[in-house]
């Protein structure tokens, strides 16, 4: 328990719900992977779920718009929908915008 808690404080627990190999899904996977590597390197746990394979999850997780990224940790829980092409908004949703906005612009 203790170990988990200490990890949870700063580790990003992300779940990406996609629908098979639809264009949006493919783009979303590529984008989120890139963003995670860029901004959350080594500090994240990304799980990708194909909702077609687990339709029950759709109801349980209140899925409507897909692809959707669920950030369950750190709190607050947030949901990001879309193909994650708007990096700024993704970072804002992940709660990283304040610290890294400058960094992005530098990187770009």
């Amino acid at each position: 328990m203790k170990k988990q808690e200490s990890v949870a404080v700063d580790e990003y627990v992300l779940t990406l719900f996609v629908t098979g190999a639809s264009p949006n899904s493919v783009r979303a996977i590529a984008n989120i992977k890139r963003i995670c590597e860029l901004y959350l390197a080594g500090n994240y746990n990304l799980e990708i779920i194909d909702v077609y394979q687990q339709p029950l999850l759709a109801e349980k997780q209140q899925l409507i718009a897909l692809p959707m990224l669920l950030k369950s940790s750190p709190l607050p829980q947030t949901r990001l929908i879309g193909d994650m092409s708007d990096t700024q908004k993704v970072l804002k949703g992940l709660g990283k915008n304040n610290e890294t906005t400058d960094g992005i612009e530098e990187n770009l």
Binding site: T19, Q77, I81, D86, K89
Partner: peptide, 12 residues
Amino acid sequence: EIEETGEYDLDG
């Protein structure tokens, strides 16, 4: 809770 980050659909 929701942030829109690009193209999506209502497949869910």
